[in-house]
């Protein structure tokens, strides 16, 4: 492994402040440079590690850029058909209710082809975590218009910009999800700055704990970038995301559970 280091004297085990979690495998991520998927994977892996969930976790990967997610996090995985991850997760959780079950889906997967599965899984209040990556585009197939593509935004299938009169409006599916009684915690986050990474991690930690308490569906949208699909540098894409995506998809909690449940969750007898 080739590496470059800062001041050598500080590099001692006792000074370690941040290291890639061991739950991430050694496989090189297949994502483009600067893609938020990698950051989100790492946060998820850190939560699984820190909550001691590796032996309980069963993840469901989608169809889309993150289809190979099962190569990157060292837990048991199922790969679902496009849009069907919530149904697959329902099957898992109903039969293995003590496991930590989550899906990881993109906007096309969750908010277009899988809309019915998403809504009904949340409506039944399946006790799972849904992680929803919204970058407003179909990345894997080469940058086509997604259900969440912004008005006027160009893609390979909206080359003159999304005309909402013809192509429909961007779907704020998380807002819909938040209205369903089956959901317990619904939030919209991002991973493009350290502060947002921290917030996303906190949200995932909460969701993991709520699942242990059988609280219902937790839903975390992560507004993310797609430098290749948006045809920008990674840094430009994060800036564009802040200026455009976050206006349409503002960050923050959409449904907050009573806070005391979090405190209760902090003190269960450790297994």
């Amino acid at each position: 492994m080739a590496e470059v280091t800062g001041i050598k004297e500080i590099i001692k085990p006792e000074n370690l402040a941040y290291k890639r979690t061991r739950i991430m495998t050694d496989n090189v991520l297949s994502y483009c440079p600067g893609c938020g998927h990698g950051t989100t994977h790492r946060i998820l892996a850190e939560v699984i590690d820190e909550e001691g969930l590796q032996s309980e976790a069963i993840g469901v990967s989608p169809v889309g850029c993150s289809v190979l997610l099962y190569h990157y996090i060292d837990i048991d995985w199922q790969e679902a058909a496009h849009g069907r991850a919530p149904a697959v997760a329902t099957g898992i959780k109903r039969l293995l209710p003590d496991k930590f079950v989550f899906t990881y889906q993109g906007d096309g997967d969750l908010a277009a082809i899988g809309t019915a599965e998403t809504i009904h899984t949340c409506n039944r209040g399946e006790n799972i975590l849904i992680i929803f990556i919204n970058n407003g585009i179909y990345g894997m197939t080469g940058g086509q218009m997604a259900p969440t593509t912004l008005p006027g935004m160009r893609s390979s299938t909206s080359p003159y910009g999304r005309d909402v009169k013809v192509m429909g409006n961007p779907l704020k599916i998380t807002d819909i999800i938040a209205t369903l009684p089956g959901t317990y915690y619904v939030t919209r986050q991002s991973v493009h700055t350290p502060a947002n990474v921290r917030k996303t991690k906190k949200a995932m930690l909460k969701a993991a704990r709520y699942q242990k308490l059988n609280k219902g569906t937790c839903f975390i949208e992560i507004v993310s970038n797609c430098p290749s699909g948006w045809k920008m540098t990674p840094v430009q894409s994060n800036k564009w995301m802040e200026e455009n995506m976050l206006k349409y998809y503002p960050l923050g909690d959409l449904k907050v559970p009573p806070e005391e449940t979090v405190q209760n969750a902090n003190n269960p007898e450790k297994k």
Partner: peptide, 15 residues
């Protein structure tokens, strides 16, 4: 839907 049902079967069978 039938689609959801068969995918629930997928999830359960994979367990």
């Amino acid at each position: 839907s039938e689609i959801a049902a068969i995918n629930m079967v997928y999830g359960g069978a994979a367990c």
